[in-house]
Computed example of a mutant assay.
Amino acid sequence: MENLHIVFWLFKDISWCIILKPLGILMIFPTLIISIVIAWRTRALMSELCHNLAITFWITANSYWMISEFFAFDEKMIWGGISYKQLTLVPFLLGMFILMYYYLYWRPRHLDVIETM
């Protein structure tokens, strides 16, 4: 499933590069759904869960960014100097905060925990 996930992700990003809107938008769904399934399946292992959630947020941000460019609202301003494209920071930062939680808080307090698949 992880390998198929990468194939969908690549199709999505290649579609973005060549501005093939229908395929790019279509590929969001399997890419995002599979990343959520992978995160769910690895929920018993904190390391895997945190990394897979970060990937899910990354795909979410990446997909929103792609859509904002496809429909030319990426440079429009929402408020002050903040553009719609900059909203991608929300899911990107959520993913970063999850990884920071894991590496700075959870992992140092659980050094004795051995996680295996």
Score class of each variant (00 low, 15 high):
Met1Pro: 01
Glu2Thr: 10
Glu2Ala: 13
Leu4Arg: 08
Leu4Pro: 08
Leu4Lys: 12
Ile6Met: 13
Ile6Tyr: 15
Phe8Asn: 07
Trp9Val: 09
Trp9Pro: 13
Phe11Thr: 07
Lys12Gln: 07
Lys12Glu: 06
Ile14Met: 08
Trp16Lys: 09
Cys17Arg: 13
Ile18Phe: 10
Lys21Ser: 08
Lys21Thr: 06
Leu23Arg: 05
Leu23His: 03
Gly24Val: 04
Gly24Lys: 02
Gly24Arg: 02
Ile25Leu: 04
Leu26Gly: 00
Leu26His: 02
Met27Asp: 01
Phe29Arg: 00
Pro30Glu: 00
Thr31Asn: 00
Thr31Trp: 00
Leu32Cys: 05
Ile34Pro: 00
Ser35Cys: 05
Ile36Pro: 06
Val37Met: 07
Trp40Ser: 15
Trp40Met: 15
Trp40Tyr: 13
Trp40Thr: 14
Arg41Ile: 04
Arg41Asn: 06
Arg41Asp: 05
Ala44Gly: 15
Ala44Leu: 14
Ala44Glu: 14
Leu45Tyr: 14
Leu45Lys: 14
Leu45Ser: 13
Met46Pro: 14
Met46Tyr: 11
Met46Ala: 06
Cys50Gly: 03
Ala54Gln: 05
Thr56Gly: 02
Phe57Cys: 11
Trp58Leu: 07
Ile59Thr: 00
Ile59Gln: 01
Ile59Ala: 02
Thr60Arg: 07
Ala61Asn: 02
Ala61Met: 01
Tyr64His: 05
Met66Cys: 06
Ile67Leu: 04
Ser68His: 07
Glu69Ile: 08
Phe70Ile: 01
Phe71Tyr: 05
Phe71Gln: 02
Phe73Ser: 13
Phe73His: 10
Asp74Ala: 15
Lys76Leu: 06
Lys76Tyr: 08
Met77Arg: 15
Met77Phe: 14
Ile78Trp: 01
Trp79Phe: 08
Trp79Glu: 05
Gly80Met: 11
Ile82His: 06
Ser83Cys: 02
Ser83Lys: 02
Ser83Arg: 03
Lys85Arg: 13
Lys85Phe: 07
Lys85Val: 08
Gln86His: 06
Leu87His: 05
Thr88Leu: 07
Thr88Pro: 08
Leu89Glu: 15
Val90Pro: 03
Pro91Met: 12
Pro91Trp: 12
Pro91Phe: 12
Phe92Pro: 06
Phe92Lys: 03
Gly95Ala: 01
Gly95Ile: 00
Leu99Asp: 00
Met100Arg: 14
Tyr101Ala: 05
Tyr102Leu: 09
Leu104Val: 13
Pro108Arg: 04
Pro108Lys: 04
Arg109Leu: 07
Arg109Trp: 09
His110Glu: 09
Leu111Tyr: 11
Asp112Phe: 10
Asp112Pro: 15
Thr116Glu: 06
